[in-house]
Amino acid sequence: MPAPARRLWVLYEPVHALTYFAPAALAAAAELGASFWARYVAQRAAPLGDVPTAVVVAAFGGFAPDRIADARAGIAPDATPTRALAVRLAGVDAAFGDLAGLPDAAVVAEAAELAWEAARACDDAGRVLGAANRALPRPDAPHLALWQATTTLREHRGDSHLAALAVHGLGSVASHVVKVAAGESPGRDLRLGRRVPDATWSAEIARLVERGLVTGPDDEPALTAEGAALHAAVEDATDRAAAGPWEALGPERTERLATLLEPVAAAARTVVPEFNPIGLPRP
Rank of each mutant, 00 (worst) to 15 (best):
A135P: 04
H168Q: 14
A145V: 06
L170V: 12
R127D: 01
A100Q: 14
G130M: 00
E155F: 13
L144H: 10
A111E: 03
L165G: 04
R72P: 00
G61A: 13
A119E: 01
A119N: 03
V108L: 14
C122P: 01
W116T: 15
H143N: 05
R157N: 10
A64W: 01
F63R: 08
V108E: 01
V173P: 03
A76S: 15
A90W: 05
V56E: 03
F96I: 06
T80A: 10
A95E: 03
G91A: 11
H143L: 09
F60E: 11
A95G: 01
L165I: 02
G158F: 05
I75W: 00
A94H: 09
A46H: 12
A71N: 06
V167C: 05
R127T: 07
S172L: 04
E110R: 15
R120C: 10
W147T: 02
A76D: 05
H143C: 08
D104L: 10
G126H: 08
A118H: 09
E155V: 06
Q43W: 01
A135Y: 05
A45P: 04
A132V: 08
S175G: 15
A119R: 05
I75F: 02
H156M: 05
R154W: 02
A132W: 09
G91R: 11
P77T: 09
A94Y: 03
L165Y: 07
S175D: 14
A76E: 05
A79Y: 01
T80D: 02
V55A: 14
L129S: 06
A141M: 03
